[in-house]
Write a protein that binds this DNA or RNA. Structure first.
Length: 475
DNA sequence: CCCCCTTTGAAGGGT
DNA sequence: ACCCTTCAAAGGGGG
């Protein structure tokens, strides 16, 4: 017999369950009972395992984190339509209209990509840097703070579209007003952040909008003059931005290092199509960026950040990495897993039936992409990563990407891994149980929250799978 | 207060 | 052509 209280509780839980955040919603995950993670002794590792646990377990945060899981994340993170290969032409693009209000938004240049500040001069010159795509990606891409509403991004804040979108559509209490009380017109551009980083005399002509937040440096003036133009985000960064919130919510983890590891693995578990979308997005971002800041060079930002360690000489023996005294590179994840993950994902890639020729057809996403996906290991941090054959990076091949993609396009992206896979069967440990691609296309092209939810679910599925597989002692 | 950690990708410079 | 380094995000942790 249930007491009133119990009944009430159940009701509440049900309510939350039904109306609550999708991210927290029970997702039909193929449950992997045992997260036979090898012993994690450190707190970090514990967290990690917990994180994985979260990812694999349904009971997660539905209630527990209901308050802090942002219900919007699944909805407002990347709207998948942005990625959809079949994204309608810009003139049809829904994004131009405020999805919620339906009010046609004039794609103010500054909104093309909220991420980049507009260089006064550049703006005009930019007819349609990415006309066919930008209005969509740009906005949403960065407009939605992954950490979102819990930790409103200062710079990301929200641009006009975002705020209107969110505020109009979602309950107000979730929407934190622009932290700095910036007007919607005074959109802070994330890319132009001139934070603590000391400005380096880099030649760029950007309106002195943002003022250094922290740097008390005497050269503020200079800073103002030359705001720090950030690098365009790469595919993975974009992915992280989108997914971080989810992971944080699901796992209650906050340490970025740990989260990033998770994301890294998830990234590898993504299908080609999905990754391709991010690559595509990234490519366009770069395009836009280059158009906005023609003279900008990544090198301009060199030295703005306090020397980055990077002690890991590829040569340095694994043992050597003790060099780092500070916070000794804690392997949030078992090292072997880390290694496997990639390999496994690799395998999955191979398995992946889909020949997202369409998606990959784009110059950026291209096959090259693939190679990278298959080539997960970061050389920088993982010495042994090297062992994996290195595929030509798409980036370098930026030019080549297109070529490669185009050339190999016919041969399908799958060909990329070929080199690797072909030569090294790297035991396709990871076989994707669910033909992810099957549900994908529709979801991608559909802005419907449901689709997105589905996508989210899909993500969730994958999260768990790779992890489970990882546990396999692949060697 | 500042840097580190961690991830992948892009890009630039050096060899 | 290849290798190495730096930076992009992000937020807790540590010195």
């Amino acid at each position: 017999m249930l007491t009133k209280v119990e009944t009430l509780l159940i009701t509440v839980v049900l309510f939350i369950f039904l109306t609550g955040p999708m991210s927290a919603r029970a997702q039909p995950r193929t449950e992997v009972p045992s997260r036979a993670r090898s012993g994690h002794s450190t707190a970090w590792l514990r967290d990690m395992s917990r994180a994985e646990c979260c990812m694999q377990s349904n009971k997660v945060p539905v209630v527990q984190h209901a308050h802090h899981v942002h219900p919007l994340t699944p909805l407002i993170t990347y709207s998948n339509e942005h990625f959809s290969p079949g994204t309608p032409p810009s003139h049809l693009s829904p994004e131009i209209l405020d999805p919620k209000t339906g009010i046609p938004r004039t794609p103010h240049p500054s909104e093309l990509s909220p991420y980049y500040p507009l260089s006064p001069g550049a703006v005009g010159s930019i007819a349609h840097p990415l006309g066919w795509f930008m209005p969509q990606q740009g906005q949403h891409m960065y407009s939605i703070p992954p950490g979102g509403f819990r930790h409103p991004y200062p710079a990301l804040a929200m641009n006009a579209s975002m705020s209107s979108l969110v505020s109009s559509r979602f309950s107000p209490h979730m929407v934190t007003p622009p932290p700095h009380g910036l007007h919607q017109t005074g959109i802070p551009h994330p890319a132009i952040v001139s934070p603590a980083i000391k400005q380096e005399p880099s030649g760029d002509n950007i309106s002195p909008t943002m003022q250094a937040r922290k740097s008390p440096a005497p050269h503020k003036k200079e800073e103002d003059k030359k705001p720090h133009i950030k690098k365009p985000l790469n595919a993975f960064m974009l992915y992280m931005k989108e997914m971080r919130a989810k992971v944080v919510a699901e796992c209650t983890l906050k340490e970025s290092a740990a989260i990033n590891q998770i994301l890294g693995r998830r990234w590898h578990s993504l299908s080609r199509e999905e990754q391709a979308k991010y690559y595509e997005l990234a490519r366009k971002e770069r395009q836009l960026h280059s158009q906005l800041y023609p003279g900008w060079s990544a090198r301009d930002n060199y030295g703005k950040r306090k020397k980055r360690k990077r002690e890991n000489k590829p040569d340095s023996k694994p043992e050597d990495f003790s060099i780092r005294s500070k916070k000794q590179c804690v392997q949030y994840l078992p090292s072997e897993k880390m290694c496997d993950s990639p390999a496994s994902s690799h395998g999955s890639m191979l398995d992946s039936p889909a020949t997202p020729s369409a998606a990959l057809a784009s110059p950026a996403a291209p096959a090259a992409t693939h190679s990278e996906q298959a080539q997960p290991l970061s050389l920088t941090t993982k010495p042994e990563g090297r062992m994996h054959h290195r595929f030509p990076l798409p980036g370098k091949a930026s030019g080549s990407t297109s070529s490669s993609s185009s050339s190999s396009s016919s041969s399908q992206p799958s060909s990329i891994p070929v080199g690797t896979s072909g030569s090294q069967p790297t035991t396709p440990i990871l076989t994707r149980p669910i033909p992810f691609t099957s549900l994908h296309p529709s979801m991608l092209s559909s802005p419907s929250p449901f689709h997105q939810a589905a996508l989210h679910t899909h993500h969730a599925l994958f999260q768990s799978q790779p992890l489970s597989l990882v546990t396999k002692p692949t060697e």
